[in-house]
Every structure is written in structure tokens, then in C-alpha cells.
Amino acid sequence: MPDRRPRGYQPGWQPRPATEQLLAEVEMILGRYAAQLPLTMRQIWYATVADGALAKQERTYRRLADMLGMARRAGRISWLAIRDDADPATEPRTFDGPAGFRRAVTDAARAYRLDRQAGQEARLEVWCEPTGLAPQLAAVTDPWGVPVYAGGALTSLSGRRAAARRAATGGHGAVCVMVVGDWDPGRQHLFTALAEDVKAFAELDAPDVRVEFERLAVTEAQIAELRLPPAPLRAGATPTQVEAIPPDALAGLVREAITRRRDDEVLAAVLAREEAERGMLLEQLRRMPAGA
């Protein structure tokens, strides 16, 4: 039987009234969380459930995903507003000639930055279970130079060892790993096992560094305070997904966790040096002959 699903752009799409109403709800949600875009499909779904526009059922998630697919194909929803989980692409870096290379070097100088965690007592990391949330969280953590690791950092053996080896760099006395992931009553032991495994590697790779783990989200307290709905029913314990937290609330949790662990004066000194060195590099490039 042929696959009759749409292909390519669909400029002539004419949604039914019920779909048009759901589309208006989604547009309102995207406007509400404009500062956190792009959102994942699951975040949008939880927002529609919280607003009462959809029932909390897996079939409504599939309906929403199909509708958003058509809305993007039709140009009703921006492609940049929704984050798709996808494997990262690796493409070769090329230039259109010496002038293009010079522009790239200048752009790199404009983006020059130091390690903004330098001099702080503890190095911070955010580990994010849903890969699709990583860019959203990175936009929050970027001003402090806090990296976000997703997917394999939580599950792979090499990711855990790499975390221990990172602890040995930078001259920090401690490393704090803040984990953002689902709350699953039946799998809480996995968080403990993750922390124990990284700490065991660090005993040899970074023996002088204290390694700490904190569950930043989701917690039982957040479930109660934010009235987070569980995921659609399935066999066994029912998890609460991190994407059920409103995007602005999640950003606030991450921001607060970082700021209470930072020395503002130390950071200000790093930023001042960064700005001065960036200016020096740009001035050197400006004075360089065009043919050099």
C-alpha cells in the first residue's frame, strides 16, 4: 500500500476548524515562551495539556506532531521554533577564498572568549537527559561558560569516564554535575549508580577534586509545586518527564542553580580580561594588510 503522507512543502494546506483552533493555541504557546525557543515537540504538547487544549493521551501527542509537521511544511510555523531530535551532522569547513578566510578569522576574533569558569571554586556542568533540550539549556548556561552534555553523557561508559577526566582540568577544587532528567520512581537507583560510577573513575583520574551530583530537575518537590502531570500511562511506574516543566520555569531553575554557585567578582574579572583581549585581536586584524 503506498505511503500517502505529505512530501515537501505544502503551501496549499487548508486545516479544518478544529485544527485551526489547535494551531492558534500552539502559536500562543510559542509566543509565551519566545525567550526559550526552540521548544521540543514534547514541551509544546505538555503546554497544550496544561492549557486544557488537548487531553493527556499519547494519541493527542501524535495528533499534535502530525499537525505541526503540516504547519511547518505550509509555512504557518517557523522551522526554527521547534527543536527536532536528530543526529549531529559533520561537514567539512570550506572558504570561498582568502577574503572569505579573513572574514572567518575576524568573526572568530569577535567571538573570542575565555574560560568563564576560571578561578571559581567549583566547575559546573549540566547533564540533560532529553537531547532535544540541550540547545535550550545551553542558551541559559552560556553567559557563565557552563557546558551542557546530553544523551551519552548520562548513559555511556565513555561519557562517565570523560566526566571524571574533565574534573582533573581547570584547577578547580570541586566539580558539580547538575542533572536535568525525567523523574521515574522505578528508576531512581540509576541516578545513584551514575553518580557513584563517575566518582569511582574520579578517584584515580582526579583524586584531589570533589565530585558532586545534584538532581536539578525533575524532583518530587517540583512535581508538587508546579503540579506537573505524569507521562501517559504505561506498564509499571509512571514517570514525570522534564519537558512537563514550563520552559521559562526550567530556564529559571538552571539560572538560579548557577548563580548561587558563582563568585560574581571572579567572573567580572574574567569578562574584563576577555573584552580587552578581544579588542586587541580585532585591532591586530584591522592593521593587517589585506594581502597578508
Rank of each mutant, 00 (worst) to 15 (best):
Ala217Ser: 04
Gly152Ile: 02
Ala71Arg: 00
Gly100Val: 13
Ala244Glu: 05
Gly119Thr: 14
Glu196Met: 04
Gly279His: 09
Met280Pro: 00
Gly186Trp: 08
Gly12Val: 04
Leu216Ala: 03
Glu275Trp: 05
Arg260Gln: 13
Leu39Tyr: 03
Ile258Ser: 11
Gln136Ser: 13
Pro246Thr: 06
His189Pro: 00
Leu228Arg: 03
Met28Lys: 11
Asp142Phe: 10
Asp115Arg: 10
Gly151Cys: 05
Ala118Lys: 14
Leu285Ile: 09
Ala104Asp: 14
Pro92Val: 12
Leu226Asp: 03
Gly75Lys: 00
Ala53Ser: 15
Arg7Tyr: 12
Val270Thr: 14
Thr131Asp: 09
Ala138Asp: 11
Asp66Asn: 09
Ser78His: 02
Arg102Lys: 09
Gln117Trp: 08
Thr219Asn: 05
Ala193Thr: 14
Thr19Asp: 10
Glu214Cys: 02
Val180Arg: 05
Pro92Arg: 09
Gly12Phe: 06
Arg187Cys: 12
Ala122Asp: 13
Gln136Lys: 10
Ala163Gly: 14
Leu228Gln: 06
Ala244His: 02
Arg210Cys: 07
Leu68Gly: 02
Ala290Pro: 00
Met28Gln: 14
Arg76Trp: 06
Tyr112Cys: 00
Pro289Asn: 09
Asp205Gln: 08
Gly171Arg: 01
Ser156Met: 12
Arg166His: 14
Leu204Ala: 10
Ala217Thr: 02
Arg215Met: 12
Met178Lys: 08
Trp183Lys: 11
Asp205Thr: 10
Asp184Pro: 01
Glu58Gly: 09
Ala109Trp: 12
Leu282Ala: 08
Arg5Glu: 08
Pro135Ala: 07
Arg187Ser: 15
Pro229Met: 09
Gln43Ile: 13
Gly75Ser: 02
Ile82Lys: 07
Leu271Ser: 00
Ile77Leu: 09
Glu274Gly: 06
Pro207Tyr: 03
Thr40Cys: 06
Gly252Arg: 03
Met67Gly: 05
Ala195Lys: 08
Tyr9Ser: 15
Ala206Leu: 09
Pro130Tyr: 04
Arg5Trp: 03
Gly12Cys: 04
Arg187Pro: 00
Ala74Gly: 11
Trp144His: 03
Glu203Ile: 01
Glu274Asn: 02
Arg7Ser: 15
Glu27Trp: 02
Ile223Ser: 00
Pro88Leu: 04
Ile82Phe: 09
Trp127Phe: 07
Leu39Thr: 06
Lys56Gly: 13
Arg93Leu: 15
Pro6Lys: 02
Arg63Met: 08
Arg165Pro: 01
Glu129Lys: 10
Gly100Tyr: 05
Glu283Met: 01
Leu37Ala: 10
Ala134Lys: 04
Pro6Tyr: 00
Ala231Asn: 00
Phe201Thr: 04
Ser158Glu: 11
Phe101Arg: 14
